[in-house]
């Protein structure tokens, strides 16, 4: 009788250890081999996109750009001036695409190859102050030598646009969510795409609930 209770306790203990050792979501990231090695804030892998996914995609994108032959302005050492156009979130998740773009901007700026203008953007300037301070030109209160003069802003050479697309497919009794990170840098003068990038992050997991 006692040994029976002992076995029961042992089984419960093993069960508890087994449960704590497993992820509860059952979702795995198929694309980023280093996903689970990154520090985790939420702990679990989910069907959604988290900072690890954005970090992975941004790194791949920056690496791709810096290895592109057009990442340097032809015949010059001056950096490209880049405007951030629309990065469309075409998924079922409420995400801010700046989570991707900001990481790229930091790396590109530090590379010395690209500077981003905040005075021009697809939905208006990111920072309206550049234009606002020019309203001070008529003001006696300001030393006019310190007010930005006419013709001092620099127009962009490149425009960064893109899309994050999501496709969900059933795979047996599981579902797979594929996220396509697509980016393009367009030479504004010619309208030609100078750089193109695509990276896919695939996540496989239970087909119990919608992925959002």
């Amino acid at each position: 009788m006692k040994s029976g209770y002992g076995l029961l306790v042992l089984a419960i203990l093993i069960g508890s250890i087994g449960l704590t050792g497993c992820g509860t979501t059952g979702v795995v990231n198929l694309s980023d081999p280093g996903y689970t090695t990154r520090q985790q804030t939420g702990g679990e892998t989910t069907f959604g996109l988290d900072y690890r996914d954005f970090e992975y995609s941004a790194k791949k994108a920056v690496d791709s750009f810096l290895n592109s032959p057009l990442s340097r302005t032809p015949g010059s050492t001056a950096p490209w001036i880049m405007a951030i156009s629309r990065i469309t979130n075409d998924t079922t998740l409420n995400i801010d695409t700046d989570q991707l773009v900001k990481k790229m901007r930091v790396a590109l700026l530090n590379s010395g190859r690209v500077m981003v203008t905040t005075a021009v953007g697809a939905d208006g300037p990111e920072d309206a102050m550049s234009m606002e301070v020019r309203q001070l030109r008529e003001s006696d209160e300001f030393n006019q030598d310190t007010v930005a003069g006419r013709g001092t802003m620099i127009a962009p050479d490149l425009s960064l646009s893109g899309k994050i697309i999501q496709r969900v497919n059933r795979v047996g009794n599981k579902q797979q969510a594929d996220y396509y990170f697509q980016l393009t840098a367009t030479n504004i003068k010619t309208g030609l795409a100078y750089w193109e990038f695509e990276e896919v992050i695939a996540k496989l997991g239970p087909n119990n609930d919608f992925v959002w």
Binding site: T37, R38, V62, D63, N67, V106
Partner: peptide
């Protein structure tokens, strides 16, 4: 730089695997 983050590479049994890095 984010180009200095950890990356992971899988080498299949009795096969070669490649590592690549670009300076930022």
């Amino acid at each position: 730089s984010i180009l200095g983050d950890w990356q992971v590479v899988h080498a299949l049994p009795r096969a070669r695997a490649v590592l690549v890095g670009t300076a930022p």
